[in-house]
Design a protein around this nucleic acid. Structure first.
Length: 544
RNA sequence: GGCCUGUUGGUGAAAUGGUUAACACAUCGCCCUCUCAAGGCGACAUUCACGGGUUCAAAUCCCGUACAGGUCACCA
């Protein structure tokens, strides 16, 4: 058969691929420079799993001084949702992704949205027809469905291959007649693979794998003229000069087919890195983190909670290469971009998404921050998520920063803040408008007399810490408390409690809690009037 | 069902044939400490899903079994 003539019949208007090959020349890459891409479908919000899938190519491209590209795979128009593309770009930007080329800032290799690349795919499909490696198929979806059923009954392998590939042997005249008749068709690959032969494939993450060759004549172009994923990714990744294809590992099993498409064109295939999904434990089973089933996986969930973007990125980095964590502990002043990540250090199975770990990383992040930065970032967060607290912050900058400074600029800072919303929880008692009740259960030794005595005759805001504490010790014996904790531990029956308990009374009376940063520093944040007011409230609380 | 891939403690994991199976999170105990947090110290896998084999030597290599995940579309 004259394949060129057939290609002309099928695609009278499509350009020759040489046009595109010239239009999109290979990039001039310096040594080791890698071009990677994130290619999502605009089908919903970004969740942790997709964020991770985007993080991988971003890291590997930028650590090689290469480019990170965002391409939108929207060839399945049934699944598309409104604002899908905008949401993806917004979320990636929020998480500090540096996108070198995208639908919003096109490079030389655009368009970056697949539905706008329709003519390109047509042209490339035409080329494969013209060299006899693809052919039109007029089988209806119903007849394919029937074929599948009979294959199932006969326990035969499912698919359009071998004797089942009816349209493979159509003559030019038959095809011409169907076209003239206006029959719909798809373009299929004319597979030359042999299912009984095996070949070795080397994945950057998973290593060596053995596959049978593909012998199924998969669809290259749907009847709407748009390509399914497999064909589109080959054409796009070739034209955009992608050096390494990163994608979810659900694609692994179609590797035999994908490699075949590269081969049919005579293009060298780039390297593939198949990323295992983030998983979640549900009862006893472990499954992939899901957009639909796991709303807590949405990145918006973490933004609302106030987990800092950088903490999330740090967590993603530890998921990427687990040795990053130790390196970062040893090099606390460095950042993610200083670490050299490796594909072969990535998890082959899926990693469990671990919120506890994320929170821990976030705590460390906060412990390293200056109080001023925390203030500013919390202000920014509250602006969107907590207007009331935003106003309080705005009017009390000095006080909040003074609070955050307690036990901060020391070798081992506190770690009690894990997200921006914690700032409110941690500071609430220093504001009269947020302090409304005593959260702790009453204890035997709670006593307002000792309190009054302390604040009238002992407490002086000007005292240094040693004097301050000595005065509390001096007060203890008057009310039957031991001045030394050790003394109390040795003879607990002789005392009502120890100096620690006296401190607790003061702490609870003023803050409502048993757990706060350094009491000496905390007291300094209060005026005399406020202290008197709190003592009054404490009295009422003890009466109840 | 076919094909592919996994399986190391409560969790994430390291180790790529060679001493007592790193490290981190969580948990528990002790110390320090005004309390809390942090920190220090210690406990937590006599063992790497199970069964065989190769080897002087196996979590690591091979075979089988079980379990788990992925995939088998004109979805990506």
């Amino acid at each position: 058969m004259d394949y060129k003539k057939l290609a002309g019949l099928l695609f009278p208007d499509a350009k020759d691929i040489s046009y595109y090959l010239e239009k999109y020349p290979k990039r001039e890459k310096k040594d080791g420079e890698e071009i990677l891409r994130f290619a999502p479908s605009p089908t919903g919000f970004i969740h942790m799993g997709s964020l991770f899938a985007a993080f991988v190519p971003e890291i590997f491209s930028h650590q090689s001084n290469g480019k990170f590209i965002l391409r939108i795979e929207d060839t399945d128009q049934k699944r598309e949702i409104d604002n899908g593309i905008e949401n993806i770009i917004r979320d990636l930007k929020n998480y500090k992704f540096i996108i070198d080329e995208s639908p919003m800032n096109e490079g030389k290799y655009g368009p970056y949205i697949q539905t706008k690349r329709r003519e390109i795919y047509l042209s490339f499909a035409k080329y494969l027809v013209s060299i006899g490696k693809a052919y039109p198929c007029f089988c209806s979806e119903e007849s394919i469905q029937k074929m599948r059923e009979t294959q199932q009954e006969k326990k035969d392998r499912i698919g359009y291959y071998g004797k089942y590939a009816k349209c493979r042997n159509l003559t030019y005249e038959e095809i011409e007649a169907k076209i003239k008749n206006g029959d719909k068709f798809v373009i299929r690959l004319k597979s030359e693979g042999d299912f009984n032969k095996k070949f070795i494939f080397n994945d950057l993450i998973k290593g060596k794998m053995e596959f049978p060759e593909n012998d199924i004549d998969h669809v290259l172009l749907k009847s709407d003229g748009l390509p399914p994923y497999a064909f589109a990714h080959v054409v796009d990744d070739y034209l955009m000069d992608i050096t390494t294809i990163t994608r979810a590992d659900e694609y692994v099993s179609s590797i035999p087919y994908h490699l075949q498409i590269w081969e049919a064109f005579g293009f060298p295939a780039p390297q593939y890195a198949h990323i295992a999904p983030l998983t979640k434990r549900e009862g006893t089973t472990i499954r992939k983190l899901s957009k639909r089933k796991d709303p807590e996986a949405a990145v918006s969930y973490y933004s609302e909670m106030g987990i800092p973007v950088d903490a999330v990125r740090l967590y993603l980095a530890t998921l990427l290469n687990s040795d990053f964590e130790m390196w970062y502990m040893q090099n606390p002043e460095k950042t993610i971009s200083d670490f050299t990540f490796k594909f072969n250090k990535m998890s082959v199975g899926g990693s469990l998404f671990d919120l506890d770990k994320l929170i821990n990383i976030s705590k460390i992040y906060f412990s390293k921050k200056s109080s001023n930065d925390i203030y500013e970032e919390t202000l920014e967060y509250s602006k969107d998520y907590d207007r009331d607290f935003y106003n309080i912050l705005l009017n009390n900058k000095e006080k909040v920063i003074a609070f955050l400074n307690i036990e901060r600029n020391i070798p081992r800072p506190r770690k009690d803040i894990s997200c921006y919303s914690d700032v409110k929880k941690e500071t609430s008692y220093i504001f009269d408008e947020l302090f409304n009740e005593y959260e702790t259960p009453k204890k035997e030794f709670y006593d307002s007399e000792i309190l009054k005595e302390y604040f009238v005759n002992y407490y002086n805001k000007e005292d240094d810490k040693d004097t301050w504490f000595k005065k509390i010790k001096d007060l203890c014996p008057k009310f039957g408390f031991a001045s030394e904790t050790k003394e109390y531990k040795q003879n607990p029956e002789k005392y009502k409690g120890s100096v620690a308990d006296v401190c607790e009374i003061i702490r609870v009376a003023i803050t409502g809690r048993t757990m706060t940063p350094d009491l000496y520093e905390i007291l300094k944040l209060f005026t005399k009037e406020q202290i008197n007011e709190r003592i009054k409230l404490f009295d009422e609380y003890l009466q109840k």
